[in-house]
Each structure stands twice: as C-alpha cells, then as structure tokens.
Amino acid sequence: MNVFRLLGDISHLLAIIILLLKIWKTRSCAGISGRSQVLFAVVYTARYLDLFTSYISAYNSIMKLVFLAASYGTIYLMFIKFKASYDHNHDTFRIEFLILPCVLLSLLINHEFSPLEILWTFSIYLESVAILPQLFMVSKTGEAESITSHYLFALGSYRALYILNWIYRYYAESHYDVIAIVAGIVQTVLYCDFFYLYITKGIYGQ
C-alpha cells in the first residue's frame, strides 16, 4: 500500500458515497445513467469473486464488500425505490457494444486462461469503459448537476491515482500488471474531456 493507492481508493469510495447520498437526499436519480451503474455492478461482481478464493488483507476484503454493497444499493435505489425519477429516455447507450468486445478481449488477452482470471480480466476491461453511458448521457442532455460532476471527478481521479500507484510499484517493487495498466490508462483518458470542463468551469464558471 502506498499513498497513491490509498488516495485512489479513498477517491473511489468518495465517488460511490457522493452518488448514494445524492440519490438518497434528493430522492431522485435524475441525470444518473442506470446503464453505467449496472455495468459497475457487473464489474465488481466479476472482479470480487476472489473474495471466496484468496485473502489479501482485512482492508482489501472490507473495501470489496463495501463496493459491492454500495453498487447494488445504488441499483436498488435507481431501479426500485426511486424508479420514477430515472431518466431512461436519455440513458440510451447500447451497452452490448461495450460488454461483447470486453468478453471477447478478455478471452483473447489474459494472464491465464482460467474462469476466475478471465472474469477478473473482463472486469478490468469493462470498468475502463463502464462510464461511457454516463458521459454519453451528460453530453446528450448538455449538462450535469454539480453533484453529478463531483461524482464523476472523484470516480475519474481514482484510476488516475492508480496510474501513479502503478508507476510507484514498478520502481519500488518491480511489480506491474500490463492489463490493469493499459485499461487504467484508457479509463483515465476517457475522463480527460470531462476533467478539463470540470476544472475550467470550477475555476472560471459561475
């Protein structure tokens, strides 16, 4: 564990909490892509199946459980409790165009051709593009509530901080994982346009 990794995890946790609080406090999930949230639930489920097979640390296990619970909690709020506020007319990104290539790619490019490893690889690929329905929704409606922007900023920062973590680990521990690094860079690049708007609007806006 290094400071970049810790900050990345905190940022990830913060994003999930911001989203849950936003939905809970406003009793509405307007402006949030249910499709992205479903993809994230698939990502966490596929990746954290190793909860049953390998123990790394209490921190690791607890965080995994928190991410899973928060993700399914968000889906419950969006699709059941506050269903009426779900803006499905604007949430039209075809997620099969993301899922199928990720399935194929994880079967072709992985560290080991075993079920759990392929699921882990699939989750890494899918996570890198899972935000696209949300970004598509924001661009379609032309605006995002500021709280939604904070959510996106925290979520994007998490993988950007992980890149620093991977650079650190490469030099400090000679540890690297090509699949995670490349997918993480792709993921971060997808946020760049949003980061630019968030920062310039934050500084020069209002």
Binding site: R47, D50, I56, M63, E112, E117, A180
Partner: peptide, 10 residues
C-alpha cells in the same frame, strides 16, 4: 505475458 498472480488491488 507474465504468469497470473494474486490481484492485490481493488
């Protein structure tokens, strides 16, 4: 490709 090892990140 390097062999699979435990994924210790989240």
């Amino acid at each position: 490709d390097e062999p699979a090892e435990e994924h210790d990140e989240l």
